[in-house]
């Protein structure tokens, strides 16, 4: 597993305590998992995404991400409607390991865009990982 100094962070993204990142993409938000999360998981073998159109609240489970011997639940960082899922991951879940910041999981139309402000900044997320 990577040391803290080896982990990749992307400035300008928002982060969550569940090791997800969020970025704006027009009027929607894209959500993925951080380098730390993919490193902890090991080889990702499957991503279970929700159906497009599902409406969920902040903190609701929207899917799971699996390695050979573990399952992690994915929690929605902000409330909203799922408008897209990354279908590339169906056939190639390893993309999450290869570049976790490029290969997003879902796209959300937020019901309250101001919730984004409540998420962690990159500095705050680094602090979280330092413990």
């Amino acid at each position: 597993m990577k040391e803290l100094s080896e982990l990749i962070f992307v400035d300008g993204l928002r982060y969550t305590e569940d090791h997800e990142w969020v970025t704006t993409n027009g009027d929607t938000l894209r959500v993925g998992i951080t380098d730390y999360a993919q490193d902890q998981m090991g080889d990702v073998v499957f991503v279970e995404a929700p159906e497009v159109g599902t409406e969920l609240n902040k903190g609701d489970e929207f899917g799971t991400i699996e390695s050979v011997k573990a399952v992690s639940e994915l929690f929605l960082p902000v409330s909203g409607k799922i408008v897209a899922v990354n279908e590339d991951l169906d056939d190639a879940p390893e993309l999450v390991n290869e570049d976790p910041y490029k290969n997003w999981l879902v796209e959300i139309k937020p019901s309250d865009p101001s919730e984004l402000e409540g998420l962690l900044t990159v500095e705050a997320y680094k602090e979280l990982l330092k413990g």
């Binding site: 073998v45 499957f46 699996e66 390695s67 050979v68 011997k69 573990a70 399952v71």
Partner: peptide, 9 residues
């Protein structure tokens, strides 16, 4: 596909 099973999930 053991992640379906009791010892993991």
């Amino acid at each position: 596909l053991s992640t379906r099973e009791q010892h993991i999930r």
